[in-house]
Design a protein around this nucleic acid. Sequence first.
DNA 1: CTCCGTTGTTAAATCGGATTAGCAAGTTGC
DNA 2: GCAACTTGCTAATCCGATTTAACAACGGAG
Lengths: 344, 344
Amino acid sequence: MSERRVTMADVARKAGVSPTTASFALSGRTDMRISDASRERVLEAARELGYRPNVTARSLRTKSTQTIGFVSDRITTTPFAGEVIRGAMEAARERDNLLFITEAGGDRDAESSLVHALLDRQVDAVIYASMFTRYVTPPKELFGRRVVLLNCLAPGFDAPSVVPDELEAGRDAARALLAAGHTEGIWAIGGHQAVPATPEGIIAGNERMRGLEEVLREGGARLDGVIECDWNTPDGHREVSALLAAGHRPRALVCLTDRVSLGAYQALGEAGLSVPGDVSVVSFDDQDIASVLRPALTTLKLPHYLLGRLAVELILRKGPLEAVVHRVPMPLRERASIGAPAQG
Amino acid sequence: MSERRVTMADVARKAGVSPTTASFALSGRTDMRISDASRERVLEAARELGYRPNVTARSLRTKSTQTIGFVSDRITTTPFAGEVIRGAMEAARERDNLLFITEAGGDRDAESSLVHALLDRQVDAVIYASMFTRYVTPPKELFGRRVVLLNCLAPGFDAPSVVPDELEAGRDAARALLAAGHTEGIWAIGGHQAVPATPEGIIAGNERMRGLEEVLREGGARLDGVIECDWNTPDGHREVSALLAAGHRPRALVCLTDRVSLGAYQALGEAGLSVPGDVSVVSFDDQDIASVLRPALTTLKLPHYLLGRLAVELILRKGPLEAVVHRVPMPLRERASIGAPAQG
DNA sequence: CTCCGTTGTTAAATCGGATTAGCAAGTTGC
DNA sequence: GCAACTTGCTAATCCGATTTAACAACGGAG
């Protein structure tokens, strides 16, 4: 694209040395002896000419492109997960790397083809990411490659995983309710399962529920019921409306996602119940809406930014990757949806 | 990364021809005569060995990396604009290109440095994108390069722009209200301006308002008032609450973004007014929440996906780029927030 | 039978750097 | 005084493709 770039040969010529000397001077290698005078002249020439090395050419020899591939099912364009990309991007940038972002939309063939496109461009490593925390089987092209799994687990696939600490988040949700004095009339909306039509097990729901139940039990509280439904707003609205219609009077709702919480808010509002006066709500994810709902939603934040950042940091660390699961804490965002239990 | 790749030399050796012949056979060029027999043997060998060309090596000679750089202020991770990336990505993929995604966060130095990082990797072209539709001045490194401006305009910079057709969207909002019979008691919330602390002019607000006023006037309707505020939920809530508290009884609200609409919904709900029974609402953007609000929000969709796609399609088109402004229609998403004007 | 044009193929150069092997000139050791 | 090191630098290769220039082998024209 456009006018000729300054090459190392230009720099060498201007500095009056050989390309070899220029190369050593510029890369600053100390194992090859270059006089201070020559080094200075090369550096000066490079500066004056505005020389920048051609990464593509260099990588042909060195095998390192300072480039990382990012493959996901849909995480890129999921409204709330762009932060993953940002975290990854910034961490990459700090180490002079760039990211190829791709998305296969869940299609295995597309996935293979994208991985090939990445490998054809000699990426140094690949981040394989999933929108939902779940078990996956990466495409065979990635076996034996430098890979970090992001927001997913793949038993038998030799690579580290970076996932949110959903179990501890479940515990923290329980602790938040206990701290406010809730011990009964607690319902979970969304349940263990997850999103419709996902072929493989989703981890988030199970772990959140396990942590929740464990700490509630230890705290002498109990869950009155668990309502299984999809993790979206219409389902949240429908299930909570049905719960109320059935005559139940919950004191606290644990909604498995903020989208479910929005549905719950709508149903409670329509029933003339206030949050947190009549019903407390604790949620998961901390999506955009969480902070602007009225009252603002107390929720366990999905640490998207840190997830992306850690994945890249692991990949760019020297040495081989260890197949370890890294759990990133989900911080509690305390806002206004939890109050003392309603009396009566 | 890992075991040696099959090179063209391997393919040539296996097919019993020279690398030159293999190259011509594989690239399928007709200007260089290769016998059908040789071609077949090369193709067969390539297939058996699973040969894939090294794009990096090729680009050293051809100058084309089949790679596009994407630089934005924050669009990547803006919750609602990931679709831009997806559109761009898919269009790129259809033509065997990949995207480097970067984000400068509005920092000029970071922007320059990112553009350099892209150019060092020999990208064929660059998409320069903005989160808000506005005027920009691209970094000097991009002058003379193959560039498409996405969601922004840069007078004097020789490149095509791709932007949403905000003017027509404003008109469509007016048409939707007129069609439902609204001619008075219409207020605009959000106004001409925009988001806080944006140094350069934002186009969206102005154009939306201009289109809106033009068609209302032509339709014999009028705007009772325009309330200027930031384009977010708390401001929407505050301003609509204030409007009602001041004794006004609007029949229709034109909210400049869906986030403002959410605030309006909250304020109306608290005042015991129903949508669309008492007040109709028409909005802009079609973010995630638009479809799950109750009632679902009628809004003019920001065509993010098409924006991204068109930008890439332009860039990958043969020939020089023309500095034309491409306006992409914003379709009306008719849902349930517009009704006939309340009586009385 | 020679000259010339095709046809099919390949040796060699190229792209922009990194790296290896080696070469002069100056030092040191004995 | 001469071999053995050092020091500072460069010629030559290599990385994996593309592309240019040229070269055999063959057929037809004269």
